[in-house]
Simulated scan of single mutants.
Amino acid sequence: MISRTERTLNHFVLVFVSILVIFPVIWFVLAALSPDTSGRIDLTNLAWVNFVTAWNLGAFGPAMLASTVITVGAVAGQTVLAILSGYAFGVLGVIGQKIIFPIILLGLMISSEVFIIPLYYQFHAIGLTDTWLGLIIIQIGMGVPFGAFWMRAAFRAVPPSLVEAAKIDGARSWRILWQILFPIARPAVFTLVLLSFMWTWNDFFLSLVFIADPAKQPATLALGVFQGQHTLQVNLMAAGSLIVALPVLLLYVFFQRHFISGVISGAIKE
């Protein structure tokens, strides 16, 4: 049983860590609201107009649309393929899976810088550079290894007796997946969606290589250009950064319970 001293110490550590995490965020928000270009905090005169100015100067409207299309398409593809591959490797069993699955996991170990140049020339040859579709395909391909590993672990955590009982009742593989296993693994799926959304939305390197047309660039590229043009205007740079980060923050706030539950359930056992 935890003593009163240990409980007090735990609360003190949690409060201290929370302050360390929250303070930079609050400072960043207040810098975005500063009327001074240096970002000097002034609580008596909050300049909400900085967000409007940053939005207009950075042309974030088309960029946010591009990021939304790319992210939604990539996350949808990653999630569907992750569920199917996780079910195949974790429940059905695939011929040669002891060889195939480690090969798929190599995608988690190989850095994108290794294959980015040949991949660019391949996509350029088939006309998929400077297109949202090309970037969506790349993001899906890079997200499948983790998704397959994640959903395989989630499905393997389900008692095998449940699957066997469904088979005895006459349920086929497709029904077992979507009506039995999927509802049980829903927290893991939510977590996968949130992680995939965050990684895809925040991507800068792949977008920089494959999207050269300013009219098609996602929000991260637009933010990079905006910060390069307004280096001395700290308040506008902070406002622009918050605009780009807002979708991820909102998604996490609304689905944080599912995220935490999915992380815990996915970490219990392989």
Rank of each mutant, 00 (worst) to 15 (best):
S18R: 07
V49I: 09
F155N: 10
S173G: 00
S207K: 06
F101C: 05
F146Q: 07
P218Q: 08
A212T: 13
A66I: 06
V72L: 11
A148P: 04
L108F: 04
L14F: 11
V158D: 08
F205V: 11
R186F: 10
S85F: 07
K216W: 04
E113D: 13
L92Y: 08
L242Q: 02
S265V: 09
D203P: 10
H258D: 00
D213W: 03
A185R: 02
Y121P: 05
S38I: 02
F28S: 07
D169M: 00
M142K: 08
P118C: 13
V52Q: 13
L208P: 01
I41S: 00
S173T: 10
V80C: 04
W201P: 13
Q256P: 01
A63W: 11
T191C: 11
P214W: 08
G141V: 03
L250I: 15
K98G: 12
A74N: 07
V72E: 02
L162C: 04
V25D: 14
W27H: 06
F51A: 04
T129I: 15
R257I: 15
W27L: 06
A222V: 06
R4Q: 13
W199L: 11
A212G: 15
S111K: 13
F23Q: 05
R4Y: 09
G134Y: 03
L14D: 06
G240Y: 12
H230P: 09
S173I: 03
G77R: 06
F89T: 04
P35M: 11
M198F: 13
I41P: 00
I19Q: 06
A185E: 03
R4T: 12
L65N: 03
Q78L: 09
L195I: 11
I110L: 14
G228Q: 08
F205W: 13
A212M: 07
V15W: 08
P35N: 12
L84W: 05
S67M: 03
L57Y: 02
N50Y: 03
P160A: 05
A31M: 06
Q229C: 02
F255G: 04
M237K: 03
L250W: 15
T220P: 00
I264D: 03
W132V: 07
Q122T: 14
L57Q: 12
I2V: 11
S112C: 00
V244W: 05
S18W: 01
M151N: 14
G90W: 10
F182R: 01
I138Q: 02
P187G: 06
T71P: 11
L135S: 04
E270S: 11
F51P: 01
S161V: 02
L162P: 06
V13F: 12
T220F: 00
I168M: 14
L194F: 14
T231I: 07
I168S: 07
V263W: 10
A222Y: 07
L249F: 15
S85P: 02
I26F: 10
E270W: 06
T8F: 07
I126K: 13
G61I: 02
Q122H: 09
N50V: 04
Q179D: 12
G224C: 09
Y87F: 15
Q217N: 00
V253N: 06
L194K: 14
A267R: 08
L20M: 14
G134H: 07
I264C: 01
L249V: 15
S111E: 12
H230W: 13
R7L: 08
W48S: 01
